[in-house]
Design a protein around this nucleic acid. Structure first.
Length: 561
RNA sequence: UGGCGCGUGGCCUAACGGUAUGGCACCUGAUUCUGGAUCAGGGGGUUCUAGGUUCGAAUCCUAGCGCGCCAGCCA
């Protein structure tokens, strides 16, 4: 039996502490959270952190988590994004059950509540233009001034709001604003806009509306309608909380949700901003939202990151309020841990070099029994063809071995994994003097990879039978940005896009059965890393994405010089 | 500058007034048919600074410094 790795105990954090205290004190009978994406782009790893937090808390406290699309801005939102977001959340391993909602489901109620506010003198229709509103808003240091329309008759505002809805006015002609305090030190309280005119077709409501609530007016009220107890969002909304609370207090909403903020995720060597990601896609820097280099959930999936790895990562980095930039290596550590125990091993040679075993009979084929996954005995073994002509990795040979290089070189013996010991007896060179082929002898007594006399070569190499290996395309991936902090210090982040973020190898060779690997399946190419069949793969032309390399001590030794 | 928030080894994070936690990274050793994995051990922190309260401060108070967010009819 395999011992299941004990899942990291869900470490507590300040939000879980708050939820626990609320449950203990009876302030929340059932914990209800929500993940509220705007369908204006694909989800990224930062969203994964939020998804794990919201769904995780709901599960841990026996509550529920809603998936709610914050679709209040039809000019930026699309059905394609809605579909992709649902697929990504599901793939990540979470289930919202019956609780799929849209802010647009509440448009009628939201409109009615805006009317309520107007009736109470807590909101008004403003005829100022966008520029006008900006001028009246004041600055960080100077208070704003009241709009000339701030004290207009309630009846007049009501009439105008109805006509706004009826489509009598063009975009931007008027807005409705909450009537709070134009001198408030918190600018979000200086009569924030709660409704605006947008003549655009909404992905769900079509042309039913031409007035749409702003985020501030829609979010908290949607939370209240759904009975959300803990509305968890990122730090940039902290300054909106007083407005969130003001609206909940002044409206006859059915429940009293509270907002809590945590620090969004930042990762080195990449960018977690839908705006920037959209540009990378639109400007063709990548092949799409699910390009394996993208930090999107769909990109991670195509790259070969398992959902469990992303969840482990989220648990590992924790949740706090301090702005943080997590090293990319920590993500890789989490993902590699999952891949190590779940991936079957195979042989793949990225940069092939021919080896001829001179004392092995031509035309003969031997079947070697090879372990599929040393971490998982249940994965069993497979039979791999061995012959006189083999391929090994070019990097595994050095004519003049560097210090600490203990792979193959003339006169040296190494082990071919699960096969035989071979000794390099000679090299063949081309006109420029470059080694193109090796000659070797094998020791028949070492069949299977062990020597009866106890000899233990310092290196074990992966290999492929030249007569059986199949060609494959292998796509190597590296950081999307060379700069660990793209765009910091005012630099243009597009200038630090890594030109070598993708390297396509067309001359790689793999074990024959890999031609049939289904898209999305991951294997470890022994000694090289984890590779996943890309969705472009075909039996005739297998294509693999390198998810990530193995930890490489030799590379580290080399780097030190 | 006004408001809000945040500063704990290279990175992330814990501490809830009782003498700095854990993970990543790094180093060493063991083990190994992947220079992988695993196991064991190790180095590294004047907890941003300066005052104060207290028997005792990373925690509380004051001041300063640094960083982030807010002046969309984006979210």
């Amino acid at each position: 039996m395999t011992s299941e790795p004990t899942p990291a105990p869900a470490r507590s954090d300040f939000i879980r502490d708050i939820v626990a205290a609320d449950v203990r004190a009876g302030r929340a009978k059932t914990v209800v959270t929500r993940f509220p994406p705007e369908p204006n782009g694909y989800l990224h790893i930062g969203h994964a952190k939020s998804i794990c937090l919201n769904f995780g808390i709901a599960a841990e406290f026996g509550g529920r988590c809603h998936l709610r699309f914050d679709d209040t801005n039809p000019v930026k939102e699309e059905q394609e994004y809605i579909d992709a977001i649902e697929a990504d959340v599901r793939w990540l391993g979470f289930d919202w059950g019956e609780h799929l909602y849209y802010a647009s489901d509440y448009f009628e109620q939201l409109f009615a509540w805006a009317v309520t506010l107007i009736e109470q003198g807590l909101a008004y229709v403003d005829d100022l233009t966008a520029d006008g509103i900006r001028e009246y808003r004041g600055t960080l240091t100077e208070p704003g001034r009241n709009s000339p329309w701030r004290d207009r008759l309630v009846a007049e505002s009501l009439d105008l709001f109805a006509r706004m809805r009826a489509g009598e006015f063009p975009n931007g002609a008027r807005v409705v604003r909450a009537r709070i305090d134009m001198a408030a030190p918190n600018i979000n309280l200086r009569d924030p806009v709660i409704y605006r005119i947008v003549h655009a077709t909404h992905p769900r409501t079509g042309d039913a509306w031409c007035v749409y609530p702003t985020y501030d007016f829609a979010h908290g009220q949607s939370d209240a309608i759904e009975g959300i107890t803990h509305s968890i969002c990122t730090l940039e909304f902290e300054v909106h909380r007083p407005l969130y609370d003001w609206l909940i207090e002044n409206l006859p909403v059915p429940s009293t949700p509270h907002q809590y903020e945590f620090a969004r995720l930042n990762l080195t060597h990449t960018v977690l901003s839908k705006r920037v990601l959209l540009r990378l896609v639109n400007e063709g820097h990548v092949r799409g939202w699910d390009d394996p280099r993208m930090p999107t959930i769909s990109g991670a999936r195509r790259r070969g990151y398992p959902a469990e790895g992303l969840r482990d990562f989220a648990a590992m980095i924790g949740v706090a309020k301090a702005d943080a930039v997590v090293e990319f290596g920590q993500l890789e550590y989490a993902v590699r841990g999952v891949l190590n125990r779940t991936s079957q091993r195979r042989f793949g040679v990225l940069d092939p070099m021919k080896v001829v075993i001179e004392n092995y009979p031509a035309g003969q084929t031997d079947m070697m029994t090879v372990v599929n996954n040393p971490e998982d005995p249940a994965a069993g073994t497979r039979e791999v063809e061995f012959g006189r002509e083999l391929w090994i990795e070019r990097d595994d040979f050095m004519e003049e071995p560097a210090p600490k290089f203990f792979r193959l070189s003339p006169g040296r013996e190494v082990r071919l994994r699960n096969a035989f010991f071979i000794t390099c007896t000679g090299v063949v060179k081309d006109a420029e003097g470059r080694v193109t082929e090796l000659r070797a002898t094998y020791d028949p007594a070492t069949r299977g990879g062990d020597s009866p006399d106890g000899r233990r070569p310092k290196a074990t190499l992966h290999w492929l039978s030249a007569a059986h290996a199949v060609p494959a395309e292998v796509r190597l991936y590296d950081h999307l940005f060379t700069d660990p902090f793209p765009g910091s210090d005012g630099r243009d982040l597009f200038e630090s896009i890594n030109p070598a973020s993708e390297t396509i190898l067309t001359g790689a060779l793999v074990e024959p059965d890999l031609a049939g690997l289904a898209a999305g399946e991951t294997v470890q190419f022994e000694r090289l890393g984890y590779f996943c069949a890309d969705r472009d793969t075909t039996t005739a032309r297998p294509v693999f994405n390198r998810t990530m390399t193995l930890k490489d001590t030799w590379a580290k030794v080399q780097a030190k010089g």
